[in-house]
Computed example of a mutant assay.
Amino acid sequence: MPDSPRGVAGRTVLVAGATSTSGAAACRVLAGAGARVIAVGRDPEKLAALALGAASAAGDLAPPVCVERCDLDDEGEVAGLAERLRADGVRADGILHLVGGWRGGGGLAGQSDEDYRFLERGLTALRHVTRAFDADLRASDAARLAIVSSTAVARPLAGGANYAAVKAASEAWTRAVAQGFAKAARDEQAPLRAAAVVFRAKALAGLEDDLAERFAALWDADAASVNDTIRTLGQD
């Protein structure tokens, strides 16, 4: 039997890369929907401003946005964050991964190693976060993980080869997480309760609220219907 989702309210959701525009929108929407939000980023000042802005937008009745400074490129720091939260009795029911950026142009010859290493940080952070919080997601009665990828994966261009390659690898990692969720449920002969989803966008600007709302809505569907799916923002 499928799980019985009860929405995102009351869930603990970690937003990785929370100080971006899309991160701020996600924190606001999730807190407004009643989720407990853990906003993770590198810059303490940006995190403090994010917490204040989210609290003001969500209102006094919404759960607070908790901020955690962490270098998600650093495996040890991410593991330490997970351990620290568990020690405080906090376990994640969801992760929205927003670590990334854009560098490109110059045709294939212009795809420098420096740009590739910059972009690769998003994949590295995803690997660290999903591994560190895997036990939390598997223990949740309704876990959801989502990343933001690009339509460039389906039609890569020479001037964005680095970017498309890293996004494709991030999608592969996320789909492997989805397969792991499904296999664990089969092995335990239990309902699938965790789901990993890829959101694609041609450009995220202007779609930040759409992303946040669609991520929150993943808890309104049973896990089996959303696990290992690719959804295009602004289209479907």
Results as ranks from 00 to 15, higher is better:
225 S>C: 00
201 A>K: 02
99 V>L: 05
107 G>N: 13
87 A>H: 13
172 A>K: 09
207 L>I: 07
152 A>P: 02
146 A>E: 02
168 A>K: 13
205 A>I: 04
172 A>H: 13
217 A>M: 08
106 G>N: 02
23 G>P: 06
217 A>V: 13
21 T>L: 10
12 T>F: 10
58 A>D: 06
53 G>F: 10
31 A>M: 08
148 V>F: 07
63 P>A: 11
130 T>M: 11
129 V>T: 10
103 R>L: 04
101 G>F: 03
162 N>F: 02
28 R>S: 14
123 L>I: 02
229 T>A: 14
160 G>C: 03
87 A>T: 12
177 V>N: 00
97 H>R: 04
47 L>A: 06
54 A>M: 11
132 A>G: 13
81 L>C: 13
106 G>C: 08
107 G>Y: 10
137 L>M: 15
22 S>V: 15
176 A>W: 09
190 A>N: 06
199 F>D: 01
175 R>D: 13
137 L>P: 07
97 H>Q: 11
108 L>P: 06
69 R>T: 09
63 P>G: 12
149 S>L: 05
154 A>M: 10
10 G>A: 07
229 T>D: 08
16 A>M: 02
180 G>I: 09
138 R>P: 06
2 P>Q: 00
51 A>I: 09
119 L>H: 01
205 A>M: 00
107 G>F: 07
54 A>E: 09
103 R>F: 06
107 G>W: 07
142 A>C: 05
225 S>P: 03
35 A>Q: 10
220 D>S: 10
81 L>P: 06
179 Q>K: 15
129 V>K: 01
164 A>D: 01
151 T>H: 07
184 A>W: 00
137 L>Q: 15
206 G>R: 00
199 F>I: 01
213 E>Q: 13
157 L>E: 09
165 A>M: 14
153 V>Y: 04
72 L>W: 00
91 R>H: 14
220 D>P: 01
145 L>V: 07
72 L>A: 03
103 R>S: 04
222 D>V: 10
44 P>T: 05
208 E>S: 08
148 V>K: 03
232 T>M: 07
216 A>L: 13
66 C>M: 09
39 A>V: 05
61 L>N: 10
87 A>N: 15
100 G>K: 01
56 S>A: 15
213 E>G: 03
222 D>I: 03
35 A>S: 15
196 A>D: 08
185 A>D: 07
225 S>K: 05
60 D>H: 15
128 H>P: 12
94 G>I: 05
78 V>H: 10
203 A>R: 14
82 A>C: 15
